Computed example of a mutant assay.
Amino acid sequence: MLPEHLAVIMDGNGRWAKARGLSRSEGHRAGTETAKNLVTRCRELGIGHLTLYTFSKENWARPKDEIAQLFDLLTLFLKKELRSLQEQDIRLKVLGELSDFPFGVRQVVAHTINKTKNCRGMTLNLALNYSGRDELVRAFKNIAESGISFKDITDETISEHLYTSGQPDPDLIIRTSGEQRLSNYLLFQAAYSELYFTDVYWPDFDSAELDKALENFSSRQRRFGKTGDQI
Rank of each mutant, 00 (worst) to 15 (best):
L76R: 13
K93W: 03
R41T: 13
G21E: 08
G27W: 11
K18F: 08
Q107L: 01
A30W: 08
F150C: 13
H49D: 04
K117T: 02
K115C: 09
H161E: 10
L52N: 06
R120D: 02
R222F: 08
G178H: 02
R91H: 01
T154R: 14
V108W: 02
T75S: 10
P168S: 03
N13H: 15
H49Q: 08
H28K: 01
C42E: 01
F71P: 03
I47E: 05
I143N: 07
G46Y: 14
T51G: 10
N59M: 15
S56Y: 13
Q180N: 03
I143D: 04
F205C: 00
F55D: 01
F101Q: 04
S99N: 12
K115P: 00
E4K: 13
R91I: 00
N142E: 10
Y130L: 03
I90V: 06
G147L: 02
F188S: 05
Q230G: 00
G147V: 01
P63R: 07
M122L: 04
W60F: 11
A208R: 12
D171R: 00
S177E: 10
T116F: 07
Y201A: 01
K80S: 12
L70N: 10
R175W: 14
S84H: 14
D204Y: 12
F101V: 02
S25P: 04
L74I: 05
L6R: 07
P168T: 07
G48N: 10
G12Y: 13
R91N: 00
I148A: 00
R91L: 00
L74W: 09
Q107W: 02
K64L: 11
L45S: 04
I173Q: 08
K93P: 00
K79G: 09
E209H: 13
G21T: 01
F150M: 13
A208V: 11
E66V: 08
A110W: 00
M1P: 09
S25N: 09
D134F: 15
Q69S: 06
E44K: 15
S23D: 12
L128R: 12
A61Q: 13
A190P: 05
N13W: 10
H111G: 01
S84G: 09
P3D: 07
Q88V: 01
A110S: 06
T32L: 04
G14P: 11
L136V: 15
W16L: 00
L182W: 10
L128V: 15
L210N: 05
E87D: 10
C119R: 03
R41E: 15
L70A: 14
E44C: 01
P168D: 05
S84R: 15
Q88E: 11
K80N: 12
L214W: 11
L187C: 09
W202E: 01
N129A: 15
A30P: 01
W202R: 05
A139E: 03
R83W: 09
